[in-house]
Amino acid sequence: MLDSLVQLARETCSDKRRQLMGHVATLFVEGADRYSNEELALFNDVLTRLIDKVDVPGRSALSERLAPIRTTPRGIVLKLANDKPEVAAPVLEHSPVLTSDDLLGLARSKGQAHLLAISRREHLDAQVTDVLLERGAQPVRRSVAANPGASLSDWGSRLLVKLAETDRDIRESLTVRHDLSAANFEKLLSMLPRERQDKLRQIFEQNEALAQELFREAGKHVEGSKLERRRSRLSAKVMLKDLKAGERRLDETVIEYSLSINLYDLAFLLAQLAGIDPRYVRNIMVRYDAAALVILCRALGLGETAFSALSRARCRHLKVPLSIAENWQAEYRTMPSAEAQRTMRFVRARLATLEACA
């Protein structure tokens, strides 16, 4: 089958080349996690030869299909990333194949459209955002400011705060970031009306208190409420893989673990999805106060039915009346998703800082 693809690659008709590339891309996408290194190298060879002979719409379609796949040959990704902006954008924004060094080189050499696509990636190192902020025009700088996954250096933070003096979009984006230093945060607040300053300070203090409390409790369990490890974590790791691959829904997984009152493995799953140490979530699980759990679950997008099942499981574990679950559920219904996500970003960053300083 692969030999026949090599033969088809010799076709000279542009339409057939586009069709062939689409066919090869389909074969690759469907078996990307199963091919041997030799087969991946062959796909790389065929696609590399086809890319130069296919028009921009065809290359753009290929970029869209290959962007999210981790096993896409590196040569193909780099070739697409250096192509025209409409071709490069999908891989620049989404491809996990591109390293920080790759992104740094592209940010230093490409134009504004490429920089804008890079600025939208889910995660960016501070050294990359520094180059984006230095070379980027206003749309790129606004995009960096609005991207919670774009890490900022102290220089980058100070530059954005300075730009915020005359750019309302950047100013508003910075008010919900979690990684400004105290000095930069205060400078940003000085640009806002007094009532807004007071509200943001209150939010900051509440989030800081939550992070500090979780950190202090990390080494201990609430007395008499320690979670038991009921089974091997292998099943939880398999479940996590399925969740990340989109083969299972978070809600049905939470309900399944809640019905068996397996809060230990559930804490592991939620922690991995939230990007924090499981010990924090284990302690959240056994606290009578549900505020932290409400924030965590709402930030992860858990539905109300699944949170209700989790609340009832917590009641049984804590040996409190099931009616208490209704109070926790009411709290969950009133928690806005955007607010929960902002709080989790702040808490995640602060916990990392506290751990590094411990």
Rank of each mutant, 00 (worst) to 15 (best):
E93P: 00
L200Y: 04
K220Q: 14
Y280K: 03
L200V: 08
A117E: 06
R316N: 11
L240S: 04
T305A: 13
E331N: 08
A292V: 02
K53E: 15
V320P: 02
L115K: 08
V97G: 05
R345H: 15
G275A: 06
E38C: 01
R34G: 02
G156V: 05
P139W: 05
K319Y: 03
Q197W: 00
E122V: 13
T71S: 13
P321W: 00
R49Y: 10
P321F: 00
S143M: 06
V286G: 01
A338D: 14
A267M: 04
L270H: 05
H23T: 15
A107Q: 08
N207S: 12
A107M: 08
L66T: 02
Q127L: 10
T253G: 01
A313D: 06
V238K: 11
A25M: 08
Y288D: 11
A274F: 07
Y257C: 09
L80Y: 08
L189N: 07
N184Q: 14
T334N: 10
L310K: 05
T343I: 07
S190Y: 00
V161H: 06
A32E: 15
Q7C: 04
A299H: 09
L8S: 12
A25F: 02
A32R: 12
K199T: 13
R248E: 12
Q212I: 09
S151Q: 15
S119P: 04
F268V: 10
G156N: 04
A267H: 03
A145V: 03
A88Q: 06
A41Q: 10
N283H: 08
A325M: 02
Y332R: 04
L2Y: 12
E39N: 06
A292I: 01
S225H: 14
L47R: 09
P139Y: 07
S173W: 04
L318M: 14
E256H: 10
P85S: 12
S337R: 15
K241M: 10
A117Q: 07
S14T: 11
M344G: 10
S143P: 04
E11P: 00
I284G: 09
L42Y: 01
T99I: 05
Q138D: 13
A330C: 00
A352G: 10
R350Y: 03
L115I: 05
I255W: 01
K226S: 11
D198P: 00
V254H: 05
A291R: 12
I255L: 01
H94D: 06
R74V: 11
T305F: 06
Q202E: 15
Q19V: 09
R348V: 09
L163F: 08
A340V: 07
